[in-house]
């Protein structure tokens, strides 16, 4: 049962923290109900935005972990060709996915006859939110993976739960903050 113990021991603390953050996200959304309902497209695509940034972070973490285990990235905070390839690959993926998400969101909004306030500003806010999160979380995940790997821990167990919950909390937080600033 060594594998079981290792996974449970490494994950339990972060899972508790992440669940707590998930609940905070729920409270934050319910507090800002009026803002979200005033701009329906945000409400419509929020679950997808959460999962988009969460997915990309999960893919990045699992890739970084595997790189560290097989030695294709040295356990040092330094630029490498492998890291650049991963960064560009995931950045292109997130931009393309965002484009699809926005098109789908707008199609649904138009087909349901919901008015869109300042569509270009909303578009700008969505892109700004996702890109800000991607850049910050990329740096955070890279440094954290190396730190945890050096400590002999599996970054998958700690970082994936933490970063997806962080993304679930930060996405609505940044979106609403930018809406308050720009609209």
């Amino acid at each position: 049962m060594d594998y079981f113990k290792k996974v449970f021991k490494e994950s339990i603390f972060i899972v508790i923290i992440s669940s707590f953050m998930g609940l905070l996200s729920g409270i934050f959304l319910s507090i800002n109900e009026k803002i979200i309902y005033a701009i329906p497209i945000i409400l419509l695509i929020l679950p997808s935005l959460n999962s988009l940034i969460g997915d990309i972070c999960t893919v990045l973490t699992s890739r970084l972990t595997t790189h560290l285990y097989i030695g294709s990235i040295p356990p040092k905070v330094q630029k490498s060709e492998r890291l650049v390839q991963d960064f560009i690959g995931l950045l292109i993926t997130i931009l393309l996915s965002l484009l699809v998400l926005i098109i789908l969101g707008f199609i649904i909004v138009i087909s349901t006859g919901i008015n869109i306030i300042s569509p270009f500003l909303i578009l700008f806010i969505i892109i700004l939110t996702i890109l800000s999160l991607f850049f910050c979380l990329f740096i955070f995940l890279f440094i954290s993976s190396i730190y945890l790997f050096k400590k002999g821990k599996d970054p998958n167990n700690l970082l994936i739960p933490f970063v997806t919950s962080l993304a679930d909390f930060l996405t609505p937080l940044l979106l609403i903050t930018f809406i308050i600033i720009f609209i």
Partner: peptide, 29 residues
């Protein structure tokens, strides 16, 4: 219920995500 749901949805990140990542890592290595 609306407060519980985001926490339940975060299960993909808390539980499923690491499970998938551990399985794929084990397959690759």
């Amino acid at each position: 219920l609306i407060i519980i749901i985001p926490a339940l949805l975060s299960l993909r990140g808390n539980l499923s995500g690491p499970f998938i990542a551990r399985t794929s890592k084990d397959l690759i290595i």
